[in-house]
Nucleic acid binder design. Structure first.
Ligand code: FES
Ligand code: FES
Lengths: 131, 131
DNA sequence: CAAAATGATACCCATATGGTATCATTGTGT
DNA sequence: ACACAATGATACCATATGGGTATCATTTTG
């Protein structure tokens, strides 16, 4: 079981790099060595983060990406939501056909509790913490 | 992201059923309706739990499976370990090539903390709780 | 010996994941 | 005006994983 997929892992490294760099704008080309990710893949990843509002982007020569918020305002949860969808520990809610006892299911309740606490944990990890 | 795969989900239902039934031995055939799982699949799942020492099995006519421990001594963690491998939130440790800064990686440390707490949560959920 | 059950494998299909390639668009500098 | 350097948007591909089926061997009961 993986909490973070590769996209998120790479994104963390890239954003930490950006937070450290302290330059207004960083191109993918200039981070790829430090981050150690294939360039086109990293680009696609950062584009998603741009769509999610976590990054600014500027096209054209001299362009690149920049953090859209301060590092302490970008959490692991943000990245995960943007890159791998919302946190859902149990998918039983998705298959109601299989699950007649959805309302009374004790397992579901336990998992919801666990999920809530996990969520607050990942909301507590910021890019700032990782710099 | 899924905490539980289908195997574990099904296994929980089956074991809860067995704990409720309070009979010494239950065949797959006699649980499949209540559990709502394709028979051959459920069989394979329970075989794995047998290999993991969580169930007893008796072959031959009149045979079947039985809980090898009291319901309060079977945790969600046991099932997950047996059916989907040990809990590992981050797979970065597996790819050391990509990860030069393994020792100092702050993300890894944060995830280890989260993973430990998550582990104790799933160790706290027993079949007894779900009956 | 037949029937009913598990043990052990091998296989299969659909989907998800990780990654690449391509072309369009936008901005900079000469 | 033009070349170039960057992102935007898609389409594509290869492999791994997950979920499930099929088959045959083995054991036990009656
Ligand atoms: S079995 Fe579906 S919610 Fe529990
Ligand atoms: S980047 Fe590999 S352990 Fe953190």
């Amino acid at each position: 079981m993986k909490l973070l997929n590769r996209d998120v892992d790479y994104a963390v490294r890239a954003l930490v790099f950006m937070a450290r760099a302290n330059k207004p704008m960083i191109s993918v080309a200039s981070m790829k060595e430090s981050v150690g990710v294939p360039r086109p893949f990293l680009r696609k990843t950062l584009q998603k983060l741009h769509q999610a509002g976590l990054l600014h982007s500027i096209k054209g020569k001299g362009g690149g990406f920049a953090l859209a918020r301060r590092p302490e305002a970008i959490t692991l949860s943000h990245l995960m939501t943007a890159l791998q969808g919302p946190l859902k520990l149990n998918d039983c809610v998705f298959r109601k056909k299989l699950c007649a006892n959805h309302d009374t299911c004790l397992l579901r309740r336990r998992l919801e509790g666990i999920e809530g606490r996990l969520r607050s944990e990942i909301e507590g990890v910021t890019i700032r913490d990782l710099v």
